[in-house]
Design a protein around this nucleic acid. Structure first.
Lengths: 341, 341
DNA sequence: CTGAGTTTCGAAAACGTTTTCGTGTTTATA
DNA sequence: TATAAACACGAAAACGTTTTCGAAACTCAG
């Protein structure tokens, strides 16, 4: 690669000092019209652009925000990134993305790479393994130094930083209410293991709705899916039983889509025999048969919010007092819960 | 944010020079055991880590690779990023992602932001608008300076740089052959507008298969979908006609899924009345009813290949002679083309 | 012609690091 | 005891930029 042209080279070209060149290029009145013009012409010709590393070092500011997510091949997370990216770009920031791959160790290593001066702040959604280990020392280190940090979706309540979550409990509550309204009585919940915060929050919303509607909670109807094992087999056990549930609330799209598929394999009519609704963020729901009703999670807004909170921290527009933004959900009713009687 | 600790601060703490501290921390034999130990202990206690900006500036190397993609909320592209990220991480590089949003202007601005010293090289998939305008001056500027650059998927043949594409023509050829084998005679092609290279390559494969099998090409069966307009309405015109095709090859998953949905709305039996296969990269195909057959594009491998090519350029392992890697596709046959007679 | 003011530029510090080279002190050897 | 070698450290340059401050040189009024 050809070395880029620098102030020094331009300076030596004209036998002037570096400072003169710098000022000339910034149209400083300190430099004579004549000198200015010739320097600018030359710089222009050689397509001079200030080296951003040098600027970042001098200004002690990178204008880059780091994002660490558990996976990137995931509609929800990529939607959030999109929101982050868009807001960041608008504010003159760039985005550096790292993937923890749900691994504690990779998350820690991402932390150490990103927080050595290369980014002004960090937006993180916590890896599964970290939630499982319940070890947040890498976060605490940053927090101690007041490093700008925003958590989203997979958060930890005890960490002192800005957070943005979706209204998990509320969404599950609304969805369960909806199922009850259409006449469901035996509603199974397909949720994650307990240590995944969003899973347990959604479970709470489900429980709240049942209680309010006077439906007794049956623990046997609550299935905690292990994401590291075969989903299909686990969900099969929900539906291929003697007395299957008449409705399913799934905490994500994949669980819901699998449930739908399996229900059809069991020749159940949907939603007549079994209604299905999922927390869904992707494109699957629209194209299943019947299309899946969903709790819509507004990932894009979430990303924007996260970026806004972070940038306000970085630029010291907000100080002290950490905020927790809750992105509300809404129901999109499709044929999987809409009985067409 | 608390300022991070630097060599200078450590030096002044012990009344030694910066160089001494630097050497001590690197276990240089030049420094006495005693001095070394106390400096290391102190640095450790204050969690010293070298400022990466300073290192990058000094070493003239950022160990960051920039990626510019048209969209990020897109299964294929995020899969590619995943491949890039994984390979890059393995080689000690970080990834900076920018989204052009299919816009020429944003692509150009991404270029100028990323190529001012903040990345060692660039991996790009060209924006739709750029392909339409056919203006590649921003690429040519980089190429003139031998800036490490790799194009993937949406490439331009005339640009002198490394490229990695999938075997678009081959995939379409295989898919069309498959449709013919199962007895289809009137095969519609749902493709993109001509300026999208992958679309036109896939069309070529389709045409080749038809010709080889002695089927006359009917231009009326080739539908060029405009992505900026309503897909559903456009695809409806393919199927809600007097004599609908008995097979459809779609150049992406969304077209295929829509076609499937619409065919069912028209009460066509799949694959009996109409077989459908798509170039698909996402999760939809598995969950439609019937599940969609697909030409599998190996996005992850593509990302890895792109990263490998780029890093070899950056590290001057490869020089001159640009390479063009072709990632082969394979067919995944599902019920949408598998007649179960 | 002198003093003040203006114009035009350069030196140097600063950001944080690494590395080469030099220098002073101590130790060992003849 | 003189000399060489080993040891322990510091100064300074380099990466590329911005900015403050100082200083020449020039202009102009009195």
């Amino acid at each position: 690669m050809k070395p880029r042209i620098t102030l020094k080279k331009i300076a030596s070209e004209f036998g002037v000092s570096i400072s003169t060149v710098s000022k000339a290029l910034k149209d400083s009145h300190e430099i004579s019209e004549e000198t200015r013009e010739k320097i600018k012409a030359f710089a222009d010709y050689y397509n001079y652009k200030p080296n951003s590393l040098a600027l970042q070092l001098r200004n002690q500011k990178t204008s880059v925000i780091g994002v660490i997510i558990p996976e990137i091949v995931h509609h929800f997370f990529s939607t959030v990134i999109n929101g982050i990216e868009q807001y960041a770009t608008k504010k003159g920031y760039n985005v550096m993305v790292c993937v923890s791959n749900e691994s504690y160790e990779k998350e820690v290593s991402n932390f150490s790479v990103l927080t050595n001066g290369s980014v002004d702040g960090l937006i993180v959604s916590i890896a599964r393994e970290t939630q499982q280990k319940n070890d947040y020392s890498h976060f605490e280190g940053l927090i101690k130094d007041d490093f700008p940090l925003v958590l989203f979706d997979r958060i930890n309540e005890n960490l002192a930083c800005d957070k943005v979550i979706i209204d998990d409990a509320g969404g599950a509550y609304k969805a369960t209410n909806h199922l009850i309204e259409i006449g469901s009585e035996k509603i199974a919940l397909l949720t994650t293991q307990d240590f995944i915060t969003v899973g347990s929050l959604r479970k709470e919303g489900y429980l709240k709705s049942l209680r309010q509607n006077g439906i007794e909670v049956d623990e046997n109807l609550i299935y905690k899916i292990d994401d590291t094992k075969d989903l299909y087999e686990q969900i099969k056990k929900v539906i291929f039983v003697n007395n299957p549930p008449d409705a399913i609330l799934a905490v994500n799209e994949i669980y819901a889509a699998n449930a739908l598929k399996i229900a059809k394999e069991r020749k159940l009519s949907i939603p007549k025999d079994i209604a299905i609704i999922g927390f869904t963020d992707g494109l699957i729901s629209e194209f299943t048969y019947p299309p899946l009703s969903e709790v819509v999670q507004h990932g894009f807004e979430m990303g924007q919010q996260a970026a806004e909170l972070l940038i306000k921290r970085i630029e010291q527009i907000s100080q002290g007092e950490f905020r927790k933004e809750v992105i509300s959900t809404n129901l999109k009713i499709r044929k999987s819960t809409l009985s067409t009687d």
